[in-house]
């Protein structure tokens, strides 16, 4: 069983072709700019959200918070009041459940992408699910990760995964710590290994003003990716305040002109390997 935040049956932005995306609950980094901080933690059943929900969609059963989808109006008040960066709306699902959904829709899909939170925290589930997919369909299996995992976990995942998308917050160690609370050494090592294995489909960097948006940093990342291999695509994403909690919740959307400048700069280095 695994904790699943959300399933999207059809996305065009989470890897090649038409994909089903599964967003898993729980994360091991604490990025300041995170758009979905409610995916960070598991629910502690404190009950704050139960009190706040005006629609009666949340209730206690056997000491645990339960969620009734049919009554929910998607106001997200529950997420706002949760001090624990969690949500009462994630569900327990088995690899079989998710496999079946993918299987039923296989004619419309090129593959499945696991994302988060940080999906590799529940890597045993991924191994089971991807094995089922590989044995029974032609769908490709992708993982969208922050890269912060033990090396032997990565090696196991590589056996069943067709492509990885890495979130690279910063190359500069200090910047990385400022943005995420953690060192990037482990992440870089994993990223380079995946690159060597020919599985690094895409690297993404979210541009956050004053943290990682210096011309030098972005040039450094672009050159780093350029020299890494000859296939990985790079995507620059401007910061948006939507969903962000805490310190950066009042920060404005990333400046458009500056974004274009950084984009053009990176384009000169990476050419067609920089994604639109």
């Amino acid at each position: 069983m695994a904790y699943i935040n959300k399933i999207i049956l059809n996305t065009f932005i989470d890897g090649p072709g038409s994909r089903m995306a599964v967003f898993m609950q729980g994360c091991n980094l604490r990025c300041l700019y995170c758009h979905n901080p409610e995916t960070w933690n598991l629910c502690t059943n404190c009950g704050e959200c139960v009190k706040a929900c005006k629609k009666g969609a949340l209730y206690f059963k056997d000491g645990r918070v339960k969620y009734n989808k049919d009554l929910c109006v998607k106001c997200d008040v529950c997420i706002k009041v949760c001090h624990n960066n969690s949500t009462p709306k994630y569900t327990d699902m088995s690899a079989q459940d998710i496999f079946k959904t993918a299987y039923d829709n296989r004619d419309f899909l090129d593959g499945i992408t696991l994302s988060g939170g940080e999906c590799t925290l529940q890597y045993e589930f991924i191994l089971e699910l991807f094995k089922l997919i590989k044995e029974n369909t032609k769908l490709t299996t992708f993982i969208d990760t922050n890269g912060y995992m033990e090396f032997d976990v990565l090696k196991k995942l590589i056996d069943v995964t067709d492509g990885f998308m890495f979130d690279l917050k910063a190359l500069n160690r200090e910047n990385h710590i400022k943005l995420t609370g953690y060192d990037n050494e482990k992440i870089i090592k994993n990223l380079e290994y995946v690159s060597k294995m020919g599985l690094l489909y895409e690297v993404r960097t979210v541009l956050v003003e004053g943290y990682n948006d210096s011309v030098e940093e972005i040039e450094k990342i672009s050159k780093y990716i350029f020299n890494l291999n000859d296939y990985t695509k790079f995507k620059l994403i401007p910061f948006r305040p939507l969903g962000v909690k805490g310190k950066l919740s009042n920060m404005k959307q990333f400046d458009e002109e500056k974004f274009e400048y950084l984009y053009d700069n990176s384009k000169r280095i990476l050419q067609s390997r920089l994604k639109e």
């Binding site: 996305t11 065009f12 932005i13 090649p16 072709g17 038409s18 994909r19 004619d107 419309f108 090129d110």
Partner: peptide, 23 residues
């Protein structure tokens, strides 16, 4: 009707059209 992200993923749309024909 797709949103604009479809424009940068023509392969994905092709898969859906083929799936539709199959259905």
């Amino acid at each position: 009707i797709f949103d604009r992200t479809a424009k940068s993923n023509i392969d994905g749309v092709l898969t859906i059209i083929k799936g539709a024909f199959k259905s």
